[in-house]
Amino acid sequence: MSIASVFDIALVALILAIGASTILVRTAFAAVVMFAVYGLLLSIAWVRLHAVDVALTEAAIGGGMTGLLLLGAVARSRSDDVDRVRVGYPVRLAAGGLCALVVAGLAIVVLHPPAAVPTLAPVVMENLPPSGLGNPVAGVLFVFRALDTLLEKVVVLLALLGVWSLAPDRAWGGTPGLQVYAKPDPPLIFLAQLLPPVGIVFGIYMCWVGAKDPGGAFQGGTVLAAMWLLVIVAGLQKAPAISRLWLRGLLIAGPMLFLAIGLAGWVFADAFLAYPEGYAKPLIVAVEATLTLSIAVALAMLAAGPPERAQQQ
């Protein structure tokens, strides 16, 4: 057994242990903390699976932003740490049996791969050069399956509107209920001044490098979102009111440009979401750059929650 597989086995054992304790641990806070750690380990697992793009996404969104969101939520509902109503023993047993069945079924499938493992990797690599991209995952996201990516942006926008829709009517158009510190916290302000410049540079780098290496609009956008949230939480900047035109404009700029270029493909490249020959790369980069901004704003606002305070005039 090679040392790499020892590492893998240790990693898997740790992931499973932490995953299980996320479910079993008593307090919600401990569970959320476990989950933050879990996201971190998962991104290492993705590295081991040679999926660096996914590892970046998992580190940024799965671990980072989701952890942030959950920690914020658990912080708000701390007083609700009441005794947990536990479901009955028979139900737990039945659920355990069902889950064991599912796991067994999936394990059988995992252990019996098809004789000839189908793969689209060669086809992707064959068709990638005309787009000018070097990163096959970006190629799939923005060239071959661009429709999915476009729809997914709409999904994020809808989720954001769904979150906003939970606001009380009087607070509509106001600022999200993201708490800032009542009094300035020097270490936090220090962090909020020092980290964002690095983060912004890294976010832009992610977006730019995504064309040829792992990275891209999602990962870059998430970093930017996190930095913005940090600045707001530290009290250095106010959260924007959701009725702001610039905010709405930024939110839709990416999907809009994507859609516009997709429609232009009809005229200039004879298919919806096709890129005209020779212009593919600059167009994709433009789409990615705008999407990065849109994703950053959308994710930050998603994490910030529904508006709670009416807009101060």
Binding site: H50, A51, L120, A121, P122, V124, P136
Partner: peptide
Amino acid sequence: AAAAGLGGDPVPQA
């Protein structure tokens, strides 16, 4: 499904 010099099939990754 790693093939064609890639560490994995990019389609499921995407």
